[in-house]
Computed example of a mutant assay.
Amino acid sequence: MRLAIINDWRLGVVDPVAGTVVDVHDALPWRHDPDPFGAGWWLRLCRELPHLRNAIGRAAAAGPPVPLDEVALRPPVLNPGKVIACACNYAGHVTEMRDRVMPERTAGAGRWLLDFDVFLKAPSSVCGPRDTVVLPATTPGGEEAPVHHEAELTVVIGTGGRDIPPERAMSHVLGYLIGLDMTVRASGDRSRRKSHDTFTPLGPWLTTADEVPDPHDIEIELRVGSEVRQKVNTAALLTRVDRIVNYASTCMRLEPGDVIMTGAPPGVGPVEDGDVLDVSMTGLGRMHVPVRAATHP
């Protein structure tokens, strides 16, 4: 099942082959709240989808399909309590960070930057698959620094928990989507450099875990214009999804609707005003994300 959030923050089921979506929101047993900041229905759905799947499926089969081009396609997550990101989870990215991207910061005492770990991005950085990444004019420290793209397989948590064992971790995953972890390549804390507004485009919809045969066999490709920048299979993940969920849950309690970005593949690079990021992942869809410079007041 492909779940989208459409129009005034309603639930839709997508048929990616037909290129259509059916509004199924009235199949949910809760009052619709059109205010995205108060719409707790999404977090309840993440937790309770197994009990609602049949009703949603019937509504999808009975409702009128609408072309995807005719709806507002929102971020396919709503009010995540946490956006957790993984650092250094592909060997090729570790190498490029050490040798090409930021050798001066990852040498000597900075070698810890090349170790796998998790960190937090601001949930307010989340935007949708048709939204525009806005490049900040400067960093808070006044630096002018490039912004890099990082295309990442992204996980959405269904059932939360603390200290989730690896052997049960995959049962806590609601589904998967495409994520872009936009990053200012400058000095300072990762969380700050990755939390600017629009720095977490997600989409185009959420594919439930039962529709993904193996999250460790997904082809990721990101192009800027005709240039292929990132191309990798998630088989190359150093820390797999079950271990990521396990590790993150030992640091912080995972809650329904939490988002986990699994790490940047090699090939990260700068984006500029006017670029369009074309990113696709096997079975998860495709996003075309434009980039523009900030407008000065």
Rank of each mutant, 00 (worst) to 15 (best):
A39C: 09
E219N: 10
G160N: 07
T207G: 01
V133Y: 12
D181R: 13
I84L: 15
A248D: 03
W42K: 05
G63Y: 09
F199R: 12
L68N: 00
K82W: 07
G225I: 01
D163R: 14
C88N: 13
V147N: 10
W30E: 11
W9L: 06
E219H: 14
G92S: 10
V241I: 14
I84N: 11
C86V: 14
S226C: 04
G110C: 15
W205V: 00
V14A: 00
I6P: 08
T20A: 00
D163N: 12
L177A: 05
H148A: 06
P204K: 02
A209R: 15
V94A: 05
P67H: 00
R193T: 02
A62R: 15
D197N: 11
M102A: 15
A39K: 13
M1Q: 04
I6D: 08
L174T: 01
L28F: 05
E227Y: 14
G63W: 14
G161A: 02
P146F: 05
V22M: 05
M261L: 15
M281W: 03
L120S: 02
R185M: 13
P123K: 08
P201D: 07
P204A: 01
T207Y: 01
R2P: 01
G110Q: 10
G57W: 07
T183W: 15
E167C: 07
L202W: 02
P215C: 07
E104V: 02
R111P: 09
R44W: 08
P67L: 00
E143L: 03
L49D: 05
E255V: 14
H296D: 05
R47T: 04
C88M: 15
H288T: 03
V22I: 08
T200D: 07
T20G: 00
I244G: 07
P36I: 04
M252E: 10
I5D: 03
E219D: 13
